[in-house]
């Protein structure tokens, strides 16, 4: 595979990358920033990608790792700068943002309320159609962990959206 062929495959993947980034971050602007960071890293290290394996899984793993690393940095900043007694009130600013997004609709809101681990598992398996093994590799967890996140996520969604069908 030449770099140009790699580039074209990456271009084809962009719309789905962007969707997964938005699911990870629960915010359109943060999602696009994350997507750009992932593109940059994929371009730098494309020769580490094993041809014949799924490019989408490789790029998603990169993207999620960046997001997790940034999350740790955010947490550290919060711990450093927030006075201790305010800690309980800080909460998750993301939840307020989610509630404010009326345009998300019931489904989007229900997804956004899931804990990150469950949302990632649901997104990868139910929406993206990855096999359990592939999804577990992207998330860097054992398959058993993946399936338990998936089951808890589904149960929460079914509770919230009603067991229609």
């Amino acid at each position: 595979m030449t770099s140009a062929e790699f580039g074209e495959e990456l271009v084809q993947l962009l719309p789905r990358m962007r969707r997964f980034a938005r699911s990870l971050t629960r915010d359109a602007a943060d999602g696009d920033d994350l997507c750009q960071a992932a593109i940059e890293r994929a371009l730098k290290s494309w020769q580490q990608w094993q041809g014949g394996t799924r490019l989408d899984a490789w790029v998603y793993r990169i993207m999620r790792n960046i997001w997790i690393d940034e999350g740790r940095a955010r947490t550290r900043r919060k711990q450093t700068f927030a006075p201790e007694e305010d800690g309980a009130a800080v909460g998750d600013a993301g939840d307020a943002a989610v509630e404010a997004h009326a345009e998300l609709g019931n489904v989007g809101r229900a997804m956004a309320r899931l804990p990150q681990d469950q949302r990632d598992a649901v997104m990868l398996v139910l929406v993206e159609g990855f096999a359990y093994k592939e999804a577990a590799e992207i998330l860097g967890c054992p398959i058993g962990t993946l399936t338990s996140r998936l089951i808890r996520g589904r149960e929460a969604l079914l509770r919230e959206l009603g067991e229609v069908g």
Partner: peptide, 13 residues
């Protein structure tokens, strides 16, 4: 219900 949930999510995203 699980199948319907999958279809709902796919259609939404």
């Amino acid at each position: 219900a699980e199948r319907a949930l999958r279809e709902t999510l796919r259609a939404h995203f």
